[in-house]
């Protein structure tokens, strides 16, 4: 009855994300066209916030000038510290809490939001050192932040988000709308 015993070396392997995470989306964040976010929720309820492939930052060969986790004069996500198993001290975020601002070399600026309620566990300091990670591997090493929803909210926090199918259907409608009439 061994479930995973047989293997097919020819088939492309499902990635880590496919195996353990569910993809959720938020399209046109705060009404701004195409500013899509992707939330990867692990089966253990933890969420990784990333840019969706459709986000403007990832289009038209843009390059990144700066990434800033200091979202206001008094609040920097870089100061977030959690301690112990219970993650004491982590900043508590709501859906529209900004996580960071990203400025591209063409001076366009984008704010990335939490998208879900939960405690901020960590932000990705690697993208500060190597901003190209954000462009090259937006859904893995270029992640924005890790958030832990409350245990009792782990099922409900994704209710306002789009499933992969819903998101893809929105994106395909966009493509139709943008293509020039023939």
């Amino acid at each position: 009855m061994d479930c995973l015993e047989q293997k097919d070396t020819e088939a492309t392997a499902p990635s880590v994300i496919e195996r353990y995470y569910t993809r959720w989306f938020r399209a046109d964040m705060k009404g701004k066209p195409c500013e899509d976010h992707c939330i990867l929720q692990h089966s253990n309820r933890l969420c990784v916030v990333t840019l969706a492939e459709t986000h403007p930052i990832l289009q038209n060969g843009r390059a990144i000038k700066s990434i800033n986790y200091k979202i206001s004069n008094c609040c920097s996500r870089l100061n977030n510290k959690v301690s112990g198993k219970s993650k004491r001290g982590g900043q508590f975020l709501t859906d529209f809490a900004p996580l960071c601002r990203i400025t591209c070399t063409d001076e366009t600026e984008y704010t990335i939001y939490s998208c879900i309620r939960g405690r901020l566990l960590e932000v990705n300091e690697s993208i500060l050192e190597t901003p190209t990670l954000l462009l090259e591997k937006p859904s893995t090493e270029g992640y924005i932040a890790v958030i832990l929803p409350k245990f009792e909210e782990s099922k409900t926090i994704t209710e306002n988000l789009l499933s992969r199918e819903e998101f893809e259907s929105i994106v395909s409608k966009r493509a139709v709308a943008q293509s020039p009439p023939s």
Binding site: N44, V82, G84, K85, K87, L121, E122
Partner: peptide, 26 residues
């Protein structure tokens, strides 16, 4: 690791891989 982070403290731990050996398959 993210897969256990919900129940363990966040920390960076140093661990040593003493030796590795590869066997090519395909």
């Amino acid at each position: 690791p993210l897969r256990v982070l919900h129940r363990r403290a966040l920390a960076v731990r140093q661990r040593v891989v003493h030796r590795m050996n590869t066997r090519f398959l395909d």
